[in-house]
């Protein structure tokens, strides 16, 4: 459905995204994950045809975004980070305006607007001015705008940012109710959102994809590893160099007098690490084996300070 090939975007000297490639198939719900400034929004904007990449291509349903922008845009509903709503319009007028922009035929316009209002539960505020609505409602109006015309693809840029916890839950419910009818790309830096909604996640950091797997696969691929948190009294560098000799150690992160060690999960390995630290004479204060969950996977994959000892995967 969506095929992104070698996408690169430079803002001046800064590379926002760097040779990004991925595919999204029909009906899939893909979570786009990454820290702030990783290039999520840029990638989404390029897919929607809002801006052009420096190089690379995007195909939607076999159509190139830059050769057939109008056709491609017809297939996409886009909710930007800041909902694009006109404060001086009533909700219903705004949605009618959107359906005209999107070329919804006049006959079906009212029903298209009504169904978007119903899906986003905006019935109570449909006659109100958008500028008087709360942030959560504005966000919903933005989503209703994206839903108008029933596009095959929905691209939602951080749909839950700035909402209060109940609104976040509602928004999540709303998004999961849209599953099945649309191909959805969802960006976020909030992990539970991905766990709640997505079939697959693409983790992006510094403009490159660091992981693109289903949740189960990702958990699996990381399950062979474990993290050990070690607190020492002194000579943290020495402990690190000793530990790095142990077979199976993948990353070591120094954090003050703490070492965060990531390694393949084996009793011998853990024993060896413990032995090395004790032998280094750094004064072992704490030794804790931590379980691996999505949050940690994310932090690990996107951590910039990491001391790489053989790549992520």
């Amino acid at each position: 459905m969506i095929e992104v090939k070698n996408l690169t975007k430079n803002y001046g000297d800064r590379k926002a995204i760097d040779t990004l490639s991925f595919k999204v198939s029909k009906g899939e719900v893909v979570g786009f994950l990454g820290p702030n400034g990783a290039g999520k929004s840029t990638t989404m904007k390029i897919i929607t045809g809002y801006m052009a990449p420096t190089s690379g291509s995007v195909e939607v349903d076999g159509l190139d975004v830059f050769e057939d922008p109008v056709e491609v845009k017809r297939k996409i509903g886009y909710l930007p980070e800041i909902p694009p709503v006109y404060g001086d319009m009533r909700v219903i007028d705004f949605l009618k305006f959107c359906s005209r922009l999107k070329g919804v035929p006049g006959k079906t316009m009212n029903s298209a607007v009504a169904s978007a209002i119903e899906k986003t539960s905006l019935q109570d505020v449909q006659k109100r001015m958008i500028q008087n609505l709360s942030k959560g409602y504005k966000q919903r109006v933005g989503l209703a705008q994206a839903l108008i015309g029933d596009p095959e693809i929905l691209i939602l840029d951080e749909p839950t940012v700035g909402l209060d916890p109940t609104q976040v839950v509602e928004m999540r419910k709303l998004i999961s109710s849209l599953r099945g009818n649309h191909t959805i790309i969802l960006s976020t830096h909030i992990l539970p959102e991905v766990q709640a909604n997505c079939d697959r996640i693409i983790i992006i950091n510094n403009g490159s994809i660091v992981a693109s797997e289903t949740l189960a696969d990702l958990a699996q691929s990381q399950s062979g590893t474990c993290r050990i948190g070690v607190q020492v009294a002194r000579d943290v560098e020495k402990a690190k160099s000793k530990v790095s000799l142990v077979e199976g150690v993948k990353h070591i992160l120094i954090n003050g007098m703490r070492l965060d060690i990531e390694m393949s999960h084996s009793s011998e390995g853990i024993e060896a690490v413990a032995t090395q630290i004790v032998e280094s004479g750094s004064g072992l204060l704490e030794f804790r084996i931590e379980s691996s969950n999505l949050e940690e996977i994310f932090i690990k994959l996107t951590s910039e300070k990491e001391t790489s000892m053989g790549g992520v995967q």
Partner: peptide, 14 residues
């Protein structure tokens, strides 16, 4: 400024 430009530019119009 109000970012509604995004709506215009991502709608199927020229």
């Amino acid at each position: 400024k109000m970012r509604t430009y995004d709506l215009l530019l991502t709608s199927p119009i020229t």
